[in-house]
């Protein structure tokens, strides 16, 4: 209606430009819709054949065209959560260092380091992981770990470069910048009054940080974790190189496994049958749904909780 009014007022330029801008804005909605539709449509063969049971089936028989997705969903969630377990605390530590401890110049340098860490392409991490990090972990990290915790099934079996273990570590390095950068922004946004009040009471820096800053920044940090989890779940190339792409539910971290993204990348080029391709696209659809749920809840969480920070006087 607005447009017509402007047209009538003899200002067609504004109307046309606004129309164009709206059109391009809407193109984002259109493209996202098209992505969902295309995945849904191309996976119809597999969805029709296996139905919902694909979600809890672990079948894997390419020649017989029988497939299940459970082991890949499991692999994705386990590696992503494992990576977050490693990267989460370290990321907060970096953020704390950058905001509370580092002088401005150091802060800038470390900021550049973190950004560069985020910029290195996934496939380079894969190459590095398989030829450098894997052997390193197997000769220096795995033996002491197995000496102490080797009785757990989680740490049984010989260490190999191609393993869930290496994959989790690589994934942790890859999501570390996400956790660190967002946590830093969130922690920096905590008002200084929060810190000063605590310090004025005679608190040490750690007490100030853990009791006045962290509670205040909690929701934002949880959001950072969730976004990192989404990234980890969708990460493809590094894992496709490292994890071994064995379609089974692993019980030991030193086993080989597969994630949804890695199995798609590893098998797409030589997927012989239409059913196989359709199943891989369905895996993509499931992956899409999972990352979408993680991402949307992360953003909603940050949006809703951030409006009323906990901590401070109401804690």
């Amino acid at each position: 209606m607005d447009l017509f009014k402007q047209l009538r007022r003899g200002n067609p330029g504004d109307a046309i430009f606004k129309g164009l801008a709206v059109l391009f804005g809407l193109s984002l909605l259109f493209i996202s819709g098209l992505v969902v539709f295309e995945l849904w449509y191309q996976s119809s063969l597999s969805r029709g054949e296996f139905g919902w049971s694909v979600l809890w089936s672990t079948e894997w028989d390419p020649p017989g065209e029988r497939f299940g997705a459970l082991q890949f969903i499991y692999g994705t969630l386990v590696t992503a959560l494992g990576a977050l377990l490693l990267a989460g605390p370290i990321g907060i530590g970096i953020a704390a260092f950058l905001v509370e401890i580092a002088p401005r110049r150091v802060d800038r340098v470390v900021g550049i380091v973190v950004e560069t860490l985020a910029a290195v392409p996934s496939v380079v991490y894969g190459l590095w992981g398989i030829f450098v990090l894997g052997p390193f972990l197997c000769s220096y990290v795995a033996p002491p770990l197995q000496a102490v915790l080797g009785w757990l099934p989680l740490f049984s079996g010989p260490c190999r470069s191609y393993s869930v273990f290496t994959a989790t570590f690589i994934l942790a390095i890859m999501i570390l910048p996400t956790v660190a950068a967002i946590s830093r922004d969130v922690i920096r946004a905590v008002p200084d009054a929060q810190r000063e009040a605590m310090l004025a009471l005679g608190a040490t820096r750690w007490e100030m940080f853990s009791r006045a800053v962290l509670p205040y920044a909690k929701s934002g940090i949880v959001g950072a974790f969730a976004l990192a989890l989404g990234r980890a779940a969708g990460e493809t190339m590094a894992l496709a190189i490292i994890i071994g792409n064995a379609p089974r539910i692993f019980t030991s971290l030193f086993d080989q496994g597969a994630t949804m993204a890695s199995i798609i990348a590893a098998n797409f080029a030589n997927a012989g049958s239409a059913m196989f391709v359709s199943f891989l696209i369905e895996l993509g659809l499931i992956l899409f749904a999972i990352t979408l749920i993680i991402n949307v809840s992360a953003r909603l969480l940050v949006w809703t909780v951030a409006s009323g920070p906990s901590g401070g006087i109401r804690a």
Binding site: G25, L26, L28, L29, I31, S32, L34, V35, E38, L39, Y41, Q42, L227, G230, R231, A233, G234, E235, T236, A261, I264, A265, L280, I281, G284, L287, F288, T291, L292, I294, N295, V296, R299
Partner: peptide, 24 residues
């Protein structure tokens, strides 16, 4: 809505976009 969708799109796994163009 567009802003929210754009933010969500940055979180789309890149492999999914590959599958999308494969079908398209």
């Amino acid at each position: 809505v567009v802003r929210f969708v754009a933010d969500t799109m940055t979180g789309f796994p890149s492999i999914v976009l590959g599958l999308f163009v494969y079908g398209l």
